[in-house]
Design a protein around this nucleic acid. Structure first.
Lengths: 219, 219
DNA sequence: AGCCGTATTCAACACTTGTTGAATTTACGT
DNA sequence: ACGTAAATTCAACAAGTGTTGAATACGGCT
């Protein structure tokens, strides 16, 4: 009763972005048609093309919109963490700075952000775009986190740090995907929609994972 | 010079499965056309439908083909692990039984298996099928691994075990995706195609992650 | 009011999609 | 060699695809 009319008539542009975000997240790039997006956004078929050009450019626009917000929030958290910790930051603090802007706070309850996260999961696991797009949008920030981790555990080899980050990134990506798989697997004990719960468990799990590389190399 | 003729004329059926596997893994379900698959398999457009019925059934057939092989290998490893360890299995041994059949051995060098893994990554992160398909194909086996983990760390709550498995599954999924992201991120130090290397790092990381839940609940 | 640039609609284009039924070829037991 | 069922090809269908140019409506300016 409020959905159809709440976006009165102004800013069809963001209505298109929202609809595209939701559709792309749910069905992937090729699983979505422009007619689909237009219908969901309540606009004419030709309008997406008018604003964003071809379909592929619309997809990029959706990705870019929130990427900058996330990057800024993450950098802010990392700066705070490094400033208070000086030259010896704790691994757990860095991981929290990495995950907190994504999984805690008011915005995670908004459906738009959940859609965006699912879209990120889709992109990150797609061999077609996973490499290029994620690198393009997020790697500069991630490199700073890697640097911080190196500072936190200087005795650990770079290779181990990168593989550990790989594990962290995978766990985060699956959390984003929101497939509801852990719900059925755990018989309802865990809810994939409960990002705060996921946050606490991921912090604990991945912190221990990183720390484990402090010991000597091979068994 | 050998590709076009090596599959002489017999078993067009598996040629179609192979081509579909590779194409679906590379571009997703909707990103692939039957004409694409037929051309890649070197068969007529109508043949996939003749053998497998509609497109969706072909997709399921591709998924099913290797799922049973993996499930059998995993159960075998888990049985060995539990038999030698008696009633007190070690977490690391269980995780190795979980990952070894996937990431080590001769078959991982075959392109067919790599394609299948990428396809699994695609399915597992797709909100559309992630829940249902993975549950259908792999959950019975995974439940047995969860049981073994419960046996290995009886003082840990079920919720923590499921979330930890979630992290393990995410790391594995990203490994399967083979996006080459860790390659560029690490400047070539790590290779996403080196599954043996990924195996060792994942075992260490996730074992520590599971063990971390042995301590008291909250900080 | 009248004008003009922007926003929006409409209709249609050329092309690709999955699927199918009829026609043709192949393989094989008799 | 013949006949039969399976395997394979061919051609075509109806439906849906992204994109676009012309036509219309809108909103703010003098």
């Amino acid at each position: 009763m409020s959905e159809t009319q709440t976006a009165p008539r102004t800013d069809r542009r963001t209505a298109i972005l929202d609809a595209a975000e939701q559709q792309f997240a749910a069905h992937g790039y090729d699983g979505v048609t422009l007619r689909n997006i237009a219908r969901e956004a309540g606009v004419d078929l030709a309008l997406p093309n008018y604003y964003f050009g071809p379909k592929r450019d619309l997809f990029d626009a959706v990705l870019m919109r929130r990427a900058e917000i996330l990057n800024a929030a993450r950098l802010q958290q990392l700066d705070d963490c490094l400033r208070t910790a000086g030259s010896a930051p704790k691994v757990e603090a860095i991981i929290r700075a990495f995950l907190r802007p994504l999984l805690t706070g008011d915005h995670v309850t908004e459906q738009g952000w959940k859609n965006y996260y699912a879209l990120i999961a889709y992109v990150n696991n797609s061999p077609e775009w996973g490499g290029k797009l994620m690198t393009q949008f997020f790697d500069p920030v991630i490199q700073k986190f890697i640097d911080a981790l190196r500072l936190a555990m200087p005795e650990v080899e770079d290779r181990d740090i990168y593989w550990a980050y790989h594990c962290l990134s995978g766990a985060l990506t699956l959390t984003f995907a929101q497939t509801g798989r852990i719900d059925t697997l755990s018989n309802g004990l865990c809810k994939s929609s409960d990002l705060a719960d996921a946050y606490e468990h991921m912090v604990r799990f991945t912190t221990a994972g990183f720390e484990s590389f402090r010991a000597q190399k091979k068994k």
